[in-house]
Design a protein around this nucleic acid. Structure first.
Lengths: 118, 118
DNA sequence: CAGTATCCCTGTCGATACTG
DNA sequence: CAGTATCGACAGGGATACTG
């Protein structure tokens, strides 16, 4: 990435785009929720609640809703008794995998750098 | 990225790493500050304050400090009257460019998907 | 200039209880 | 089961004033 040239145009667009991306991912539990659903392909509300240790039902509900609005996950109500709801990544949601991978790799390198080895 | 296999080991490490990365980047102004410094190579406090519209001196001071602790930027006090301070990206800070690029690209794609074209 | 200190308001989030 | 409703604590962050 070149950081110089066309400051006024390129940079402002870039800032907007980065902000959009961060908005989607920066919820306190978003990445953990995505990870849980991703791992199991399909996952139910109460199961995610257990996967993501520490999250409350209120937060899970809220963040799932946000992810759904952003078309990253698909919510399916199954006709069971009592009701069961399944969540899964959409095709668009799958594209997050790449950036999660990048974040992971950078995070590992960063940890080595800061905390020092291991 | 494969999301399945070695759930208990791989996934937990991954979550940790992603969390580390997000920690560094998720400050309200971090990316804007980095972008400003990156664009000019070296940049002074008051200049960044103007580049990043809306930020307060308190927040700028706080986030710069965090970036410095994480060894992403280098702070240099120049022996002028009155004092001048220059900030620049460290070699480690430069490695962020890749992930900022990824976030930017994903953000653009996401915006097209959600807001709909343009 | 480059910050610190203070005050205060707001949104966020946890705990808990309740509903279809 | 899969949420919603409500309350309250508390941290984030803005405005402003002050300091070396």
């Amino acid at each position: 990435m070149e950081c110089k040239k066309d400051f006024q145009t390129d940079r402002k667009k870039e800032m907007l785009a980065v902000h959009d991306a961060m908005d989607v991912l920066s919820g306190k539990w978003k990445i953990y929720i995505i990870s849980s659903i991703c791992h199991y392909n399909k996952r139910r509300f109460s199961d995610i609640l257990e996967d993501v240790s520490g999250i409350s039902n209120k937060m899970l509900s809220k963040e799932l809703k946000e992810l759904e609005v952003n078309k990253l996950i698909k919510r399916t109500v199954l006709d069971t008794q009592p009701v069961t709801v399944q969540y899964e990544l959409t095709a668009h949601g799958q594209t997050l995998k790449t950036i999660v991978t990048n974040l992971t790799e950078w995070g590992i390198a960063h940890r080595k750098k800061i905390i020092g080895k291991k």
